[in-house]
Simulated scan of single mutants.
Amino acid sequence: MKTIKFNKTECGVDFLINVIDGSQLAYKYLLPKVHNADYFEILIFRKGNGHILIGHKTIKVQDNTILFISPFQHKRWNVDYAQLDFTILIFQEDFLNEFFTDKLFTSRLLYFYQYDNSTFLQSNTGQIQSICNILQEIKSELVTPHLDSAHIIRSLIYYLLQRLNREYAKAHRLPFQIDTTNHAYAFKKLMELHIKEKQRIHEYCELLGISRITLNKAVKKQFNLTATELLKQRLLTEIKNELIYSEKTISEIAYEFGYSEPNHLMRFFKNQTGMTSSEFLADYQNGSN
């Protein structure tokens, strides 16, 4: 599987961020074969035609669609290049960490590393144009940097990402409040790093140095889910990706995730989805997912 990597030299920028006129480079970024990338992507479609498969979810790409894609998510595009008019914002996590001195910033953005809701927004022409105007300002600072360009880019990207976060929370009816303890977001970030080898709450409590009660309270407040429910969502997403995109057997997947017996993984999958892994794959291949 191809991994598209961020290349500052190729992008012609000095930062780990870029704004791209997708209409001219659709063939490079919107590949018809399964691939992933090592950066975050936000795609703003003024005109859209087709769909994208992200993980196990199919999303229709139409006019005024905003897509959010996290690093290394498996994806495959089926679109009509000639009918597209869109802009892409790409950036690596290190860029935000450096700019905001906050290693949990991307974990606070509800549309990235989303396990339950679809990672898209359906907007309107006015909102899309407003977002594209901001992206054009960022692009101008990237192409012709000045002494104060870093400050301007920082303010513009912070405003844009937070604005989209608010709109995403509203559209998907998600809790939107500030977690002053950071435990919920730290837990979410740790799951991205360790989900294959750690599937028990107490393991994450040990990493965070907090009690199960404290973690559960923080997660419930921020995501309106228990810590166990959020962990199960993340684990299920990872297992589905392995079933769809790898050529591993159930036994091999179970071993990789630390299950002592394949039946234990299969029981978890059936309890969460109501389907066996074979039924899930059959539905996926028939376009039901």
Rank of each mutant, 00 (worst) to 15 (best):
K220T: 13
D94A: 12
E206M: 10
N286M: 13
T237M: 10
V34N: 04
C11A: 14
N78W: 05
L96D: 02
N165D: 10
I4G: 00
Q24E: 12
S251N: 13
H151T: 12
F268H: 06
I195Q: 01
Y204M: 05
Y284Q: 07
V13D: 01
F86S: 01
C205M: 04
I152H: 04
E93H: 09
A169G: 11
D116M: 09
L43P: 02
L109H: 03
R154C: 04
D94F: 10
S130I: 10
I210D: 02
Q92D: 10
A184I: 04
P71K: 07
E197T: 15
Y284R: 08
L96E: 04
Q122E: 13
I138C: 03
P175Y: 04
I210E: 02
M191Y: 01
K240M: 06
P71N: 07
K240F: 03
K8A: 08
H172K: 15
Y284P: 05
E206G: 05
T181I: 06
S23P: 01
N36S: 13
S278T: 15
I54R: 03
K248S: 12
I59K: 07
F112G: 03
Q136M: 11
L230E: 01
N241S: 10
Y113F: 15
Y39P: 00
F100H: 05
N36F: 06
T228D: 07
H194F: 11
M266D: 11
L281I: 15
S140N: 11
D63K: 15
L160C: 07
Y159C: 08
I134E: 01
I17A: 05
L67R: 02
Q62Y: 06
L142E: 01
N133Q: 12
N124A: 07
I69N: 05
E206H: 12
E279K: 15
S140I: 10
I178K: 12
L225H: 08
F15C: 08
L190N: 05
E137C: 13
R173I: 09
E141C: 14
V13A: 01
Q285N: 14
H264W: 11
D21Y: 07
V13K: 01
N289D: 08
L235D: 02
I42E: 01
K28P: 04
I201L: 14
R163P: 00
L215C: 06
L230H: 03
Y29W: 13
F45W: 09
S130E: 13
Y168D: 02
K220Q: 13
T119L: 04
T180N: 10
V19R: 00
F45S: 03
N289G: 09
T214L: 06
K196H: 08
N271A: 10
T9R: 13
P32M: 09
L147V: 13
G287T: 12
L84R: 03
S70L: 02
K47H: 13
I54W: 00
W77M: 03
V34S: 08
T101N: 10
I244R: 05
Y115W: 10
Y255I: 10
L96W: 02
L160R: 05
L104N: 04
E41R: 11
I195S: 00
G50L: 04
H264Y: 12
E167H: 11
L31N: 03
G287S: 13
I201A: 03
H74K: 13
